[in-house]
Computed example of a mutant assay.
Amino acid sequence: MPRFLSSIGATERWLILVIACICIGLSLATDTFFTLVNAFDLLNSSAVNVIFAAGLLVVLVAGGIDISFAVGASVVQYLAVIALMKLGGGNWAIGLILAAFFGFCLGAVNATLIYHFRIISIVVTIATFNLFFGLLMFFTGGVSIYLLPDWMTRRVILFEHETPAGWAEITLPVLVMAVVVLATWFLMRKLSLGRQIFAMGDNVEGARRLGINIGAMHYLAYGWLGACAGIAGLMQAHYAQEVVPNALYGRELEVLAAVVLGGARLGGGRGTLLGAILGLALVAITQNGLNLLGVSPYAFRMIVGFIILVAISMSGETLGFLTERMRRSRRADDVASGGAE
């Protein structure tokens, strides 16, 4: 076995094999799939979801679930653009900082409710999903923003190549995606904070006994996802050249299915960035292939639902498990507080 394949997990190897088979099949079924233009278009359009996936992986490894991040990204789009216009337009640096800050604040709301009020993460994020989206639609009236700062409407092309099928281009969202993925990899694999997140996701009580600040880890995990979502929202606005309230609505299930398919365990303690990216690549390639073959988009939604169902069934980390996990954590907190007294 090549050294590269032997250094990655079984899930990642299977995903690589499945992706290769699907790509071969689509290349034979359609003339437009195996082209540089389609490959680069797929990379550009998937950049936002990869940024989402990097942040969501941190939350899943920490033992939580968050389905509010896509709606949070929509909220950040509005907040960031309005703030930038009030600041005179700003630039990319200010825009990314504002987006990450607003996103972190929304993630901190989830962390506060989950940690301090001891509510199961999926229940909290279902609530904030509806809360964030409801507030967004109430205050905006569902009206899109087309007047963006000039620097946001200028396409930033990092690489382009002319082919018989047209121009193949790699744009700014791909670079931002690469930076976010690298930063997430550094956090999870090179810093002690990442090891603490893995430890908390694997065993909350054991992590607490080791002296890990569980509250800080919650804020780090959900704040990181929020910041990633904010950056992804800004990239989506740049890519679409407009801010639409429901443009990212529904992305959360697609990204969740991809990350879980990549080996992240519902319940925490396990997951890799490579697996998350490969899972997302499989989902994106499947969607792209169905579009090229003229298959109804509803078929793709069925596939995503099936992936989530299979992943939850195989993981054994059901809502009951998560409830019991939260109950054990609460008992441990009570014991610790009693000992302190």
Rank of each mutant, 00 (worst) to 15 (best):
A54F: 02
I212M: 07
S68W: 04
G64C: 01
G316P: 06
A281M: 13
G211E: 08
M188W: 02
V18W: 00
V179D: 00
V335Y: 08
L147F: 15
F52P: 02
I303W: 04
T32C: 07
I24N: 04
N49R: 11
N288H: 03
L42Q: 10
A100W: 00
L266G: 01
N213H: 14
P297F: 05
I170C: 11
Y219A: 05
G95L: 07
Q241N: 14
G88A: 12
G215P: 01
G166R: 10
V174S: 02
I170E: 02
L84P: 00
L225D: 00
L113F: 14
V295A: 15
A237G: 09
T286M: 08
N203F: 07
C21Y: 08
A127P: 08
G289Q: 05
R209E: 08
G88M: 13
L136H: 02
R3H: 10
S121H: 06
T323D: 15
N213I: 13
G320D: 14
F306A: 14
N288L: 09
D31V: 09
E169M: 13
S6C: 05
S296G: 09
T30Q: 09
A311W: 06
L290P: 05
A340R: 15
A99D: 01
I157R: 10
G72F: 03
L234F: 11
L84T: 04
L248C: 10
G142I: 08
L84F: 08
A100K: 00
G88V: 08
A100I: 04
A221D: 08
F101D: 02
G289P: 08
P2L: 10
W14Q: 10
N91R: 03
T153E: 15
F133A: 05
L290S: 07
V71I: 12
F101P: 01
A216W: 11
I170H: 05
L253G: 10
L36T: 03
I8W: 01
F139N: 10
V143L: 15
M200C: 14
L266T: 04
F306N: 11
L280M: 15
T30H: 09
A93C: 01
V18R: 01
L5P: 07
G339E: 12
V76P: 00
I120L: 14
S121R: 00
T32W: 12
L309T: 03
V260M: 09
G289T: 12
L248R: 05
L187I: 10
A336W: 12
V260T: 06
I82E: 13
L191N: 13
T112S: 14
R118P: 04
T163G: 12
R251P: 06
A247E: 00
A247V: 07
N38M: 13
V181S: 05
G233D: 02
N246W: 11
L136S: 03
G226I: 07
W167G: 01
R209Q: 13
V18H: 00
R325A: 06
M235N: 07
P2G: 13
I65G: 04
C21K: 10
S68F: 06
V124G: 05
P149C: 11
R330E: 15
G226P: 01
P2R: 12
T32E: 14
F306H: 06
L17C: 13
G95A: 04
I303E: 00
V156M: 09
A311F: 00
E162H: 09
A240Y: 03
E324R: 15
L175Q: 03
G25N: 09
A54E: 02
L256K: 03
I67G: 02
G134K: 09
E205L: 06
L96F: 15
L256A: 06
V58G: 08
L136K: 01
